[in-house]
Design a protein around this nucleic acid. Sequence first.
DNA 1: CGCAGGATTTGCT
DNA 2: GCAAATCCTGCGG
Length: 200
Amino acid sequence: MTVSRFDWTTAPSSQIATVARSLLGWELSAGAVRLRLTELEAYRGSDDPASHAYRGKTPRTAVMFGPAGVAYVYFVFGMHWCLNVVVEPAGRAAAVLLRAGEVVSGVDVARGRRGLQVADRDLARGPARLAQALGVDGSLTGTSLLDGPIRLGPGDAPVGPILSGPRVGVVGGADTPWRFWLAGDPTVSPYRPHTPRRRR
DNA sequence: CGCAGGATTTGCT
DNA sequence: GCAAATCCTGCGG
């Protein structure tokens, strides 16, 4: 299936999985760091219990209800930022979580942010790691990924097979196979089933 | 290698 | 008050 340059900004929610899959291999750049996306997850709005927008529009999720092509950056577990692309026209919420990538440029800058001991393949291997490698934080929520400080654009099409499976770390919607990744790519994050936290 | 536990803040119930 | 679209470390086999 061919996806032309910016189809994903107008695709209907029924095609969000296709949109997420089609963004594999695209390139994301922020300053000196550029990476090639190797793992993504699709999140829909009101009918997707795993989505932050499931319970409606709040100050936090407001940008998900806005126009496609902007960044939705959220904060989790008191310490990590994760980067999404909003992928539907204003009025309906949906986003694609950018989960992992291969750093193809600016490796030294990315390592400076992530830690000097971090192996190349681990620089952006996971959503919070990817955001940290790019220097992304919540202040970038709402900025355009087509025309802003972070840029998302087409890269070389993936050559190998694309696999899909359940999304990582979610409770509701755990059976929906909306995680997509490049088969065999070393920068794809390890899959961890959701484990409830114990009380203390 | 796998698994378990803890860090640490926010947003919503 | 509690759970969270995670990551890192330490321990055991």
